Computed example of a mutant assay.
Amino acid sequence: MSRYAACCLALANLIALASIPDAFAHCFVGPRFFPATLAIDDPCVADEMSLPTVTWSKTPDTPPATEWDLSGELSKRITEDFGVSIGETWTQIRQPDGSVTTGFQDLETTFQYQLLKDSPHELALLAGVIVDWGNTGATNSGLGTSYSLVTPTLYVGKGLGELPDTMSWARPFALTGQVGYQIPTSSFDFTQSAFIPQQLVYGASLQYSMPYLKSEVIDLELPDFINHLIPILEANFTTPVANNFGNPYTTTGFLNPGVIWVGSYFQVGLEAVIPINRDSGSGVGVLGQLHLYLDDMFPTTVGQPLFGGTPSTPRKLTF
């Protein structure tokens, strides 16, 4: 069995074994639950951990190399509305000739503030700043950089629960998105003899919540496993917009169709990774993630904000 198939099988087994009837979740806006999406971020601050996130893909080189990314991220609320996360990614790139490059990418931290949670309109807004710290990764292998990247970012989530009764079938739909402007701390990379562009980094997700369908629209008496599912389509893109002298302003990105299974204290997601063009990658990859809800697992201890938090009963999803 290939490593690709083994990864998919392991994630499928984990989903199948998790059959808890009730789920608690951290990103509620009114009756709407926004799951932690895999390719972009969800629009809420929370105490949570993604470990592991595994990606298999092929690079855009000719002939392409095979790339494995293994990452983890820990998010912690400092106050009810302000949170910080820290993430790291280990990468292995195997060339067609058998040579292998391995190492850590630059350390990433994110600072986020919850601007709005409008329950009646199922609307959430979040502002953040992502920092990829230079000289913290494997610069000798080309996996890290000598400069940092600072990306002010706005996140949004909107449920469609306000649709009229004639469109009740569409109420479980929700949209999330983010847009950021990535600014390098240096304008020129002397090791590569190339300008470092400023880039627009943006993405969105379209999701259909089976838990919402059952609890807020109609109970179709589907199997319990189906009622835990959120089918999803994610997309993320990067477009150079400034300081890109001598290089084409080509947009790169990926489409990620997949599904998220929501459990009591965790979720499991599995998505395909489809490059939008040859500059983005070769063929179809796979992305899988185990995501833990620390604020639901430990609501009175590590799941509380460091300042101003009070113990509360976790919000329950109905299946």
Rank of each mutant, 00 (worst) to 15 (best):
A204I: 02
L294Y: 02
T185R: 05
A23N: 03
Y208H: 07
S75M: 06
T166W: 00
L287G: 08
F225M: 11
A272Q: 09
V284W: 03
T318Y: 02
Q92W: 02
T166C: 05
I276Y: 10
N140G: 14
Y293N: 13
E80S: 11
K117V: 13
L115W: 11
V179W: 01
D22K: 03
S2F: 02
G253H: 03
P120K: 05
P120S: 10
F307M: 08
L154A: 13
A6S: 12
K76T: 06
E162Q: 12
T53L: 11
P21I: 01
L9E: 15
Q92I: 10
E80L: 12
T89E: 07
V259F: 09
Q182E: 08
Q192E: 13
N243A: 14
Q198V: 09
R278H: 10
T252G: 12
E221C: 11
C8A: 14
D295S: 09
F24W: 02
R77N: 10
F190P: 05
E73W: 06
A174C: 11
S187W: 00
Q182A: 13
V179D: 07
P21D: 09
T252R: 03
G281L: 01
Q192Y: 05
Y181L: 15
A6P: 00
L125G: 03
M167A: 15
D81A: 14
V241R: 02
Q114V: 14
F82A: 05
L11G: 15
F111L: 13
T251A: 07
L270T: 14
Y4A: 06
L154C: 06
T59Y: 00
T101V: 15
A272M: 08
G144N: 01
A204V: 05
V268D: 01
Y113I: 07
T110S: 04
A124E: 00
P257W: 01
Q92H: 03
Q267S: 15
V100A: 14
Y208V: 07
T139G: 05
K76V: 07
G263M: 04
E67I: 05
V100Q: 14
